[in-house]
Design a protein around this nucleic acid. Structure first.
Lengths: 133, 133
DNA sequence: AAACCAATGCAATAAAGTTGCACCTAACTA
DNA sequence: TAGTTAGGTGCAACTTTATTGCATTGGTTT
């Protein structure tokens, strides 16, 4: 089940398993604060460092959605966190949830001469289907 | 020259003029910290509130580039800050500059049912032409 | 000139992110 | 098996960025 750690060459530890499973259950991009409030028996800095490690090992990607806090979401299988592996996100300004729009990949764009792209952060925002009454 | 304030129906004040001219000279997206360090005789909160006012009046738009601080850039003439008015940005991870890629408009995408878009934050990152040696 | 209202500056606070350090635990070695 | 080591974890402190309360200023209106 969680042989993700073997694949990503990372030691399996209690905190890592819990954080991974938590992200996996939610299938949304979550903030440290949000995760922390649910996994309240874990320390904030432990979760923080775990997420950082996950980013380094390309287990999760970060999203800067303008909410004021960084969100973290599980990568898709085979993701190498290159722009072409990534997708758009949607941030709901009402419920503050951030969705991965897996169907919307980052388009390849032609940049000005000399610019080299390595990351992409695509966020659309507005109202999600739950909040759009 | 700076009849932008008349157009946007906003009182012209010393701080507003200085901040506007500063942004206009640079033609990049700048952080509060950056602006503050150059306009050192102005108070941080005054600049902060001025930028907020500019955002409200659609004189500037914000960019969340993952640098840790919000960047502000002047809008184009006629901009209404709708997604279709906006463009991609490029954040250089070396010099930390954020460029407006005016030639790259935000694409219109088809969202899942019930999602309504009102804003867009498109940021590519990597090395800019100055830092790409 | 008095009154008013918005803008400004100063200072304090909130919120998010980050780090130092000590302890613990699990894996390795002799 | 006991000792050693390295990395992971928790606690607390701290940095940075964002934000707000409040008193003062300055310009406009009556």
């Amino acid at each position: 089940m969680t042989d993700i750690f073997k694949i990503k060459e990372l030691a399996s530890t209690p905190v890592r398993v819990l954080v991974y499973e938590y992200l996996n259950e939610h299938q949304k991009a979550l903030s440290l604060k949000y995760i922390e409030s649910d996994l309240y028996d874990l320390d904030r800095s432990s979760i923080f460092r775990t997420l950082k490690t996950f980013v380094d090992h390309k287990i999760v990607h970060t999203i800067h959605d303008g909410s004021g806090s960084v969100k973290y979401a599980l990568c898709q299988e085979g993701c190498n966190c290159d722009p072409s592996d990534l997708h758009f996100h949607f941030y709901c300004t009402t419920c503050e949830a951030t969705y991965c729009l897996l169907d919307l990949p980052v388009p390849s764009v032609s940049l000005p001469t000399g610019f080299v792209i390595s990351q992409a952060n695509m966020v659309l925002s507005g109202l999600c289907n739950n909040c759009n009454s």
